[in-house]
Every structure is written in structure tokens, then in C-alpha cells.
Amino acid sequence: MSTRSRLLTDPLVDANPVTLQMLGICSALAVTVTLDTALTMGIAMTAVLALSSLIISLVRRAIPAEVRLIVQITIIASLVMAIDQILQAYLFDISQRLSIFVSLIVTNCIILGRAEAFAMRNPPLASLLDGVGNGLGYLLVLALVGSVRELLGTGAVLGRPVLPTVAEGGWFEPLGFMALAPSAFILLGLLVWGVRLIRPAQVEPAEAGTSADQPSGGAS
């Protein structure tokens, strides 16, 4: 596989920003109650990430080192505000349900993380691909968690009934727990575990100075 297409595919599983780097967890908990909000959030995030990586990479040589974080955040925040307005204009219902989480894309660690770690030191095309790849990796995790939560929480996927619920004469009793944020934490944990079973290379080495009978205590 060429280096360029690896930029796009690596963040899907091998270097997924959520399951490997544990970034963007907050929004992944908040917007995954149903699949459609998860997808919209994922697409909005991918758009912001792709554009911010591209723009930051284009101007990376002009950005003075002392103020680079402020410049990056200004660019990211402007993109987020523009996307928020576009959602309110064209996808009003979904934008109402996503409420403040679209604006909070600006604080999503994945975006500043990719800007600092990649876009500031790589050419524009590679940065664009890296941004799209990481956005799609985030979208993939949100879509997985969102479809499981919506299916088990309401018996439907994308609003279409899949499991006949008790309320409608079927056998499936919706799990109210799936509508609450902690369920997303558990699903994410299971997902991380699953990925690491298949790709043992992602398991972090034990931290120095810790052993099995000595809890690490300070790990955050």
C-alpha cells in the first residue's frame, strides 16, 4: 500500500484516534444515543478535521512558533462556527439534537492533536489525507457505538424498527441504560478490548516501576 493511502486507512483501526489514542471520548459519549446524531457529528468532525489540517499545513511555515497554538485554535474555531451555522441552516432538527456538541468540536483533542502532531510538519495533501483518515476513524467508532446503543436502547436503527419492542407487541424490552452516557463508556471499553485482541501490538507496555501486585496509582 502506498504511503498516501496508508495516511487514510491507518487511523481507521491501526492508529484510531479514539480506540488507540483515547482522544475525543467526551463527544463519543454524548452524541451516540442514536445513529443519526453519531453520523452527523462524525461527518461534521471529519469536515472540520480535513479542512483544519489542510489550512494549517498550507500556512505552517508562516505561523510564528510563539503563537502557533492560538493561530491553530482560531482557524479551528472559525471552521467549527461555520459548520455549526451550515448545520442549523440545512439540517435544523439534527443540529437541535446535537445542541452544544457541534460547538464543542473546537475542544476535541483529536483536531488540535492532528494539527500539532501532523499538519504543522507535513505538506498539505498528506495533511488533508491524515485529517480525513482520522475523521473517518472517529466516525467509524461513533457509528459502531451509536448503532449498538440505538439498537439495544430503542430496538431500532436510524429510526427504523429492527427488534420488535414489547410496547409494539413484540418481545424486545429496550434497555434504558443504553440511553445514558455510561453505556457508551462500557461499549467503548469493549471495543478497545476487541481491537487489542486482534491487534496485540496496540497494548501499551506495562509502565516502568509498576508490577502486577503493585497498583500503579498515579496512572491517569
Partner: peptide
């Protein structure tokens, strides 16, 4: 640089 970024970003947000 900071002024340029501010003006361009401001124009983008206001325009949208």
C-alpha cells in the same frame, strides 16, 4: 500573521 489570521477567520465566520 496574527492580524491576517484574525481578519480572514472573522470574515469567514461573519460571511457564513
Amino acid at each position: 500573521v496574527v492580524a491576517t489570521v484574525a481578519v480572514v477567520c472573522g470574515a469567514l465566520v461573519t460571511g457564513t
